[in-house]
Nucleic acid binder design. Structure first.
Lengths: 203, 203, 203, 203
DNA sequence: TATGAATGAGGATTCATTCAT
DNA sequence: AATGAATGAATCCTCATTCAT
């Protein structure tokens, strides 16, 4: 979707040399845009007016369209870092936790924290009808494999039900957190997540 | 603008003679409107354009505004019957089931069935930002007490965790089903509901 | 404009005999309508929604259209009595006042009082673009001759400028009062009327 | 969104070079909008449909909202020049006229000419219920002080009644002219203005 | 005759998207 | 490349007027 190349770290200097000055501006703008969008998504939702995001970033609207031709492109870019961080935490948790189920509990709570604290994320994935594929794909590509590994370990240890798939669980957590964005002191999404985790156990 | 009376056939023959015909059209239209809105809500969401609902019902737009001055009025009217039916099923289940937890399982599945099959309902409650209060109130008024009774019985029987509230559970189920509306063969909302129910058990 | 006949007083009993009962209902409605319209015109202006007038009168909207096919018909009917009363006061004032100019002053103030106290009247005449002719004609037919008589007497007595016409003065007073309907403690329409009267004097 | 600067031709050549073209379109549009609105206000009143003004100006509707977010903004902008010109004429008249009353007569006639020839202005001030404050304030801010000075001079010279305020007179003239917009060969608003001026004299 | 339900044109406003500068 | 002005489709809502009952 028109994102910059997923290059290895080493070739950066060359590409910068090839186009040294212009790229700096463009990068600054892209960064400003991502920050602005992240901020606006939280307060106004992923369907916030383009103009507001542009204003927040201090750039013209055309600049948004240049960097992110579709809204989905912007949405995905905004959340990619957070998704990456979440994905990368999985193996470490699995390696250090007392048991696979403990690792799973921790990772799921980490994921839920992402969704709830950086809220907008879960709702974005759920509501982003047009860019659904892109955002959904991001989640699936990055997170399902991570959770699948943890789940496989837990299943091998006999800690969770055998028929539980990573996608099923990931999706369940996502929906729960997506629905929890309206502030409501009487409702605690994290408690629901605990219930779900308890429900996953093999007895 | 309320519901028409669900009267037995035999009563009020005189008043019908006095004012026999006029209301028939209005009733037909209100019914058509409710059906049309229910249908459009499923495909286009509760924020669907008024014009589309009117067209679907085969009436003018003004007719919608006459019968349902605000969108919330229409949304609530559309879902009231279904909510009522669900509420009324609660006591019967509690009376006949083998145990309170069995009754709870059945009622929660009934509720989830409503949400999933008559979909739009759960999303409506979640998305209806403006009419949120009205729709939310409908759910709370009708369903929370029903589930609270069941839950109290289950708790008294030691079948469920002590700190679980009816609102918490109702909301969890609602969010899960609301997120499950996009068709996805790899995801089964009912399985998530089962996980939740399992997680509610006292062990 | 569909008004009832401009008949002499004597034939009323006959017409009532010809259509005794139905007419009673119709008259009641017409009276209610006139009262309601007068009241609504004051608060909401002559362009008030038909529905509001009907509601105020406690009749259906169709009834308004039956009695007063156009808005102008209703507006004229509402103000006819007041205009008549004003017209009828003219000769008496002229006969009893100390001088024609005194009579003119009194009558003009009477007219201004009508316009200001029963406000809506002046604005109605001014704003009623469509029914302009009808309402204007009402004023011209009834009031211009009355003021013309007074003015002629004053002119004959050498009290007012020779080139002043009844229509010119009537219109001036009307516009002044029409513009004065917005409440404004810093502005006194009656003072303006006095200035105008002073300005009419022959010196 | 303010007025463009009425700059002398020679200044800011550098900045124009730096950003030479872009603003030209916007200015052209703003000018076209003001001209179109002035024209449409005359024929259709200040409540004319936005679409009609846009069409008259040859721009999209959104362009009106960009330049003049509220109708009041547009109305005020349309009439500001004329009001300014009128205000600026006051001191000169007072300085050159044979007497303060002569100056007052001339200024009032100038004001009335504005109102009548550029008609719509008076009716705008009168009818613009929402933007009433803005337009009213424009008149009060600019014109009341000007007339107040003239009036004070005339009062000091013993030429006008002592209790006459600038606002009272301005408003009277305004209402007279506002009411005179319908073409009517039998009515001469300027004659009414003369009557008013005559009525202001101290005798 | 009276009612008031239904219609639908009319007008305001927002905002995604394009494109001249 | 960046800007932000312009466009106009989409949607909401009101209310005059008609007409079935």
């Amino acid at each position: 979707m028109g994102e910059e190349r997923r290059v290895g770290a080493g070739d950066e200097p060359l590409s910068r040399t090839a186009n040294p000055t212009k790229r700096a501006d463009a990068r600054r703008n892209e960064k400003a845009l991502l920050d602005a969008a992240a901020s606006v998504f939280v307060t106004d939702g992923v369907d916030a007016p383009v103009r507001r995001i542009a204003a927040e970033a201090g750039v013209g609207m055309g600049t948004i369209y240049r960097h992110f031709p579709t809204r989905a492109d912007l949405v995905v870019a905004v959340y990619r870092h957070q998704v990456d961080a979440c994905a990368e935490a999985g193996p470490a948790l699995l390696a250090t936790a007392a048991s696979p189920f403990v690792a799973m509990t921790r990772w799921v709570n980490l994921f839920a924290d992402f969704l709830v604290t950086k809220h907008g994320l879960a709702a974005a994935m759920r509501d982003d009808h047009d860019g659904f594929t892109a955002l959904h794909a991001l989640f699936l590509d990055r997170l399902v494999p991570v959770l699948a590994d943890i789940l496989a370990a837990a299943r091998d240890a006999g800690e969770v039900k055998a028929d539980l798939t990573a996608y099923q669980l990931l999706r369940a957590i996502g929906d729960v957190c997506a629905g929890a964005e309206r502030v409501d002191p009487a409702y605690d999404a994290r408690l629901t997540v605990q219930l779900l985790l308890d429900g996953c156990r093999q007895r």
